[in-house]
Amino acid sequence: MSATEVALAIAVFLASTVEMVEALTIVLATGATRGWRSAIEGSAAGVALLAVLVGVVGVPLVHYVPIGTLRVVIGGLLLVLGLSWLRKAILRASGHQALHDEDRIYADTVAKLGGPAAGATRRDALGFVVSFKAVLLEGMEVVLIVLSLGTSAHLLGVAAASAAAAVILVGAAGLIVARQLSSIPENVMKMAVGVMLTSFGVFWVAEGTGLHWPGSDLAVPVLVAGFAGVTAIAVTGMRALVRPAVPRVAGALVDREGAAR
């Protein structure tokens, strides 16, 4: 396998894992409240529709769009997506934004769907729709990443296989760990994916316009290392800008009331 293939497979696998963990939280909450049959059927329908999208959109893209144009457009999409993920991961790692809390999302979903459960074997329309939507919405970003990376490098099969491996792994892990999804280091994975998508975006934008990188594909790991370094510096710098929260202690309130009197 070339450096590009390895980096591409890792990027798609990590991105799919992050998105599927988010979907799994909702599917587990749906299963626990509305019944497992509908939750599993809804998830399966979502995954099937996503797989069809990859085939229907991806194959014509590879065969009919000129590779230079495809690489510029796809590189731009990867750059927007990668920079967004990276920005959010840096803000979360440096304490400027709250971390993604799977436990809280699980509790919120259970509270929203609370009511008479359909039981383990009966069908429940609400359970089906909620699971289907969760998988479809979270998976849409995975489809874009699979299509972007797969078509620009002409490695659609590798990208799709990496995403499928992540779906299977997260699904199996979900059965085992059930509600312990909050222990998955989601922000670290998000940061790694952001670094890789940004690196691929920069690589393909330049290649698509006719600017060739020294060392060809070997430039990808160099870009990954460079953007990882920039990210580490940004997290350190942004941590220094975090304002400490003002403690709302009883004494302060008493003092303020006393001053008012």
Partner: peptide
């Protein structure tokens, strides 16, 4: 790319302490 990443991240500092999820 680096400049836009750093500028956008700096713009997002402290302004969006979002609700988890």
């Amino acid at each position: 790319t680096v400049v836009f990443l750093l500028a956008s991240t700096y713009r997002g500092r402290g302004a969006t302490r979002s609700v988890p999820g």
